[in-house]
Design a protein around this nucleic acid. Sequence first.
RNA 1: GCGGCUGUGGCGGAAUUGGCAGACGCGCCAGACUUAGGAUCUGGUGUCUACGACGUGGGGGUUCAAGUCCCUUCAGCCGCACCA
Length: 803
Amino acid sequence: MESYNFSEIEKKWQKKWEESGCFHAVNGSEKPKFYALIEFPYPSGQGLHVGHPRSYTALDIVARKRRMQGYNVLYPIGWDAFGLPTENFAIKNKIHPKIVTKNNIANFTRQLKMLGFSFDWSREVNTTDPEYYKWTQWIFLQLFKKGLAYKTEMPINWCTGCKVGLSNEEVVNGVCERCGSEVVQRRKSQWMLRITDYAERLIQDLDEVDYIERVKTQQKNWIGRSEGAEVKFTLTSGDDMVVYTTRCDTLFGATYVVMAPEHKLVEKLLPTLENPDEVRDYITLAGKKSEFERTELAKEKTGVQLKGVYAVNPANGNKLPVFISDYVLVTYGTGAIMAVPAHDDRDWAFAKKFDLPIIEVVSGGEDVQKEPYTDVYKGNMINSDFLNGLSVKEAIPTMISWLEERGLGKRKVNYKLRDWLFSRQRYWGEPIPLVYCEKCGWVPIPEEELPLELPEIEEFEPGENGESPLAKAYDWINTTCPHCGAPAKRETDTMPQWAGSSWYFLRYMDPHNPNEIASKEALEYWSPVDWYNGGMEHTTLHLLYSRFWHKFLYDIGIVPTKEPYMKRTSHGMILGENGEKMSKSRNNVVNPDEVVHDFGADAVRTFEMFIGAFDQSTPWSQDGLKGCFKFLERVWNLQDMMTDEENYSSDLESNVHKTIKKVSEDYERMKFNTGIAALMSLVNDFYKKGAVTKGEFLTLITLLNPVAPHMTEELWEKYGKGGFLSLAPWPDYDEAKTIDSEVEIVIQINGKIKDKMMIPADLDKAGIEKLIGESEAVAKLVDGKSIVKTIVVPGKLVNIVVK
RNA sequence: GCGGCUGUGGCGGAAUUGGCAGACGCGCCAGACUUAGGAUCUGGUGUCUACGACGUGGGGGUUCAAGUCCCUUCAGCCGCACCA
């Protein structure tokens, strides 16, 4: 027997799989479908990270197993290739981003193929391919036509390094998520998508899908639904000021009101105030601060009273002072609040600083002059007129009804979610397919003109004034209005990277269709994605955005399901050997090329699955990888002790059936580490015995195939039943044979283990008790003490409680 | 501050419904085979004051029985962060 030459074997089978097209999914098949999806990678210049194969191998195992179980499996791959790193690299090195992307994709392709994933490469998509982004643009046009895309001037987060507007999500601790430069506020006209219209459905429909709980929680937290009420306060100036509150039960405890500095009413009131200059100064100051600074300085509350005006508390007619303060956000609720310092931390801090009254209206706390009492739904109402004595839970609806009857307020649901900033002043993104005409306004380009391709330009740098690089492509910009024919200009902003990844899973279903996103039949057959695995870092934004687009496509009759993904799981990170996150600066990066070269793809795949619990972060270990390589070698070397016997041997039969069951279940539950451990145990059993039957060996390599496909294909070719092992049937097990006839039970005295005993597995409680009663060993253990009681757990243990 | 996750041998980690803590792997120790071994095979390996006792971050509780359930506390990681 020749030794295990993994590099030769792996090349051989990768070639055979590719040439045969055995992993291609079939449209219009009679078989049941299974659609497994991994997050398509961003082809960065650094090449594959060892984290990528963790996710890809996991779903590869599930996909391969399902294929062997007779499913028509779609396991596709593609490239999320627009985006800033490529563009920045292009600018720095004066290479066209198109070329950079092409090179990076070539490298990623090589690396992915080297790892032997059963991707259907014939369906590869690339978000930067005009034939792909044609449909990204098409979806945008439908959003525009339905009024879900709109342009508005608004303060944006401006990255001083990338010179690009960022969404809130892309600003981390006041700096750009990508380049780390300072982010400042700027006003700019931007395209927005009305994701907020879908907020409620994005929460509600989570009930219909099988996402791991923490993903659902994160989606819900991000959308941030809150139930409360809008309450109208009339000002002494005669104006109405509406506040939003979730605690309208505390209305009697309101001792002042606050508006955001940007609130429209402030501007209006300014001329009538006693202190307009002071107020104006404060507004200017607040406007200069970035959102980060405003939140960063949260400890110290600031604000200015609008002198000369008061707000009338609708509950009791009290006149309350009116403030502006930047602790109130203009973007949430109504941009104005009623302050109840006794029962809100922020209001309390503000009241203390400005020496405002603090009135307790909910009992149950300590002295509210010393600290606010903020527990929700606890305590009873006091100092609150008709609410007195009610619990908080009762008081809220009572107050809302009272307000509604008098036209002073109404029930209101608010969301933290804001509309999606969809414009980027960048070159390397999908052009927004709209034209601005002086007469007609924003006009969509005719669908038959899609794709609107990116113009070829020389300079990709964004302008200092924040203009898109496309603004310099004069020939491209200047066009005619599709509506009236007058001279018009194209939109020069491009779409964010999220755009192409919001619908790519649909394109895989029918990737070469020139007429539609995908054919109706393909969408009907493949939708929804059965199982989507990806990183926790994408569980808020990418998932939310793509669910939003999918719901929109559902609404306009394109896709057949409300939700795109039936099941979502997440993998943990692979850390450096020192337990820290892998990074160049920490010098702990593991290069997939090197480890595959040294130990082979099968060993790397096996190790990445064996390394630890799939959803948990775990450090890399070169020794652990070696151990998995050794395991594969032990499987390979079993050839030497293999007999011709086709059946399982009688002494190991039960073991084999148990292993089939365990491995089948563990792969489905993503407990790959314990599944592989079971295979290792079985191999150890063969070694202990010094023999393995051919039947046992073939079952072993079939179970191992999804994890280590190359080596097992090679062994199947030598000993198996012909064809690809990857397409051979998954082994069955006989439930009856997984059950032992005799089991070992534990004898405990007062909960301490004293002895063990083999008994027939089907013995019931009474039978066991009888057996124990007759046992001399047990009698010795009890030794004259009186038995208080005996607990019998069939098949597990007997606990004798003695005195 | 809010939300979520995690604490188990020297290390990575196992342990359906409370029922033998430490599966499997690494590392380490010993033996076999070897000219040799950073190869391979076999055996051992939680701790201790060791025929017994103690052990799942700490403290308390429920139970015949707790890594698992309850209360409390500490530490670390991740996400959000003035959202009224």
